[in-house]
C-alpha cells in the first residue's frame, strides 16, 4: 500500500495558471548506503514522474539517486478545459503507481 497525496484545485478559470502538488511514499534508496552489517543496500528509486492532462503530457521529471525519500513535487500548468489530471510514477523495476484528480474549468 503506497500512499499518494495530490493537491489540485477543484475549479479554475480558463487560462488560469494553476499550482499542482504531488507527494508519494517511497524510500528512494540511493544504492550508495551500507547497512549495519556492512552490506550494500541495493538501489531502489523512482526514475520517472509524469503528469497527464486529459492524456496530454504537461509535466515530467527524471529522478536520480540524490532525491530524498517521499519525493514532493510542485509545478504549474495552464487550465485550458475541464478534465482529468493523471499523476504517474514509475520505478526502476517498471512498477507504476498513479492517481487522478478532476478539474472543472469555467
Amino acid at each position: 500500500m503506497t500512499s499518494i497525496r495530490l493537491s489540485v484545485p477543484q475549479t479554475a478559470r480558463k487560462d488560469e495558471i494553476i499550482e499542482l502538488k504531488a507527494l508519494i511514499q517511497h524510500p528512494m534508496e540511493s544504492g550508495y548506503r551500507r547497512g549495519s552489517r556492512g552490506e550494500q543496500i541495493p538501489r531502489n528509486i523512482i526514475t520517472r514522474f509524469e503528469c497527464l492532462y486529459d492524456g496530454e503530457l504537461v509535466f515530467s521529471a527524471d529522478f536520480h539517486p540524490a532525491i530524498a525519500a517521499d519525493p514532493f513535487l510542485k509545478f504549474y500548468t495552464r487550465a485550458v478545459r475541464s478534465g482529468t489530471l493523471e499523476f504517474r510514477w514509475t520505478d526502476q523495476h517498471g512498477e507504476t503507481w498513479s492517481d487522478t484528480a478532476s478539474l472543472s474549468v469555467t
Binding site: S3, R5, I24, Q25, D70, F72
Partner: peptide, 14 residues
C-alpha cells in the same frame, strides 16, 4: 500537504 508524515496519517485513516 508537504509534511510527509501525513502519508502515514492518510494510511492510518484508511
Amino acid at each position: 500537504f508537504a509534511n510527509p508524515g501525513y502519508l502515514w496519517v492518510d494510511r492510518g485513516a484508511a
